[in-house]
Design a protein around this nucleic acid. Structure first.
Lengths: 128, 128
DNA sequence: TTGCGTTAGCGAAAGGTTTCGCTATACTGC
DNA sequence: GCAGTATAGCGAAACCTTTCGCTAACGCAA
């Protein structure tokens, strides 16, 4: 038995989630159009994946409306945070900052972003 | 055919890589002891996983020495960076800083780490 | 040299993910 | 109402990952 809510989305699941984050709550057809664009897969596949994801609790759906409307169960932010936690746990054995340093060192930050990060650091220092 | 070097390590593979990062180049026996500690798996399993990882290019081995010595093909840092790139690509569609902010906001940083990050920000600001 | 523990490898089972074919049902325009 | 199209679901195939049993080869001590 899979522990409830413990599993990270797989590759295709993530692709579907991202579509839902972009489009907002959508019927299968719309999701499928986007997914097929990227992968050329079948309508049945999209339906099935959504049903699997529903079982796993990754998406929710409105059974009232027809056609059925699906939406992501988690926000993009929360999902990213979970991924990060796992990455930190698995690769860095728990030190979040090592990872942050990596990301910063990748050097894609603009002045504005650096300023934003600094502001956040100030807030964190205040709290801890 | 899997594209060369394109695949992220899977769960167990990552666990083995982490052991190799900690221990440095090691014979199967040492890797196995650590892995079994965490997961209770069989010696054969460790051998097989290493052979699979060798095929995928995730580890290298010294065929001279006996018993055979394995080492990670990539550094921890480079692996983390690849994970991050993928996360950024798949979840955030390319904006690295969004992710960094998430990491910071996860709030696991100590005072010392915050100081370190700030120092890095200073350096980056100087350069850009 | 014989026997024993260790190392190495392989094939296939077990388990998870992704794909699709087939079927049923609902909706739409005639 | 009927035919044609879109929606929904299910089981199983195809594929990948993880696990292990079995076997072979090696090294070492009695």
């Amino acid at each position: 038995m899979r522990e409830l809510g413990s599993s990270q989305p797989t590759a295709v699941e993530l692709e579907i989630l991202r579509i839902l984050w972009e489009l907002g709550p959508s019927p299968v057809r719309d999701i499928h159009v986007r997914l097929a664009e990227a992968k050329g897969t079948n309508y049945s596949t999209t339906v099935k994946m959504l049903s699997v994801m529903l079982t796993k609790g990754l998406v929710k759906r409105d059974d009232q409306s027809t056609p059925l409307v699906y939406r992501a169960a988690m926000t993009r932010e929360r999902t990213a945070k979970k991924f990060l936690s796992e990455l930190i746990e698995k690769v860095y054995d728990g030190s979040a900052m090592s990872l942050v340093l990596q990301a910063l060192a990748s050097g894609k930050a603009s002045q504005a972003e650096i300023a934003e990060a600094r502001k956040l650091l100030d807030e964190m220092e205040g709290k801890s």
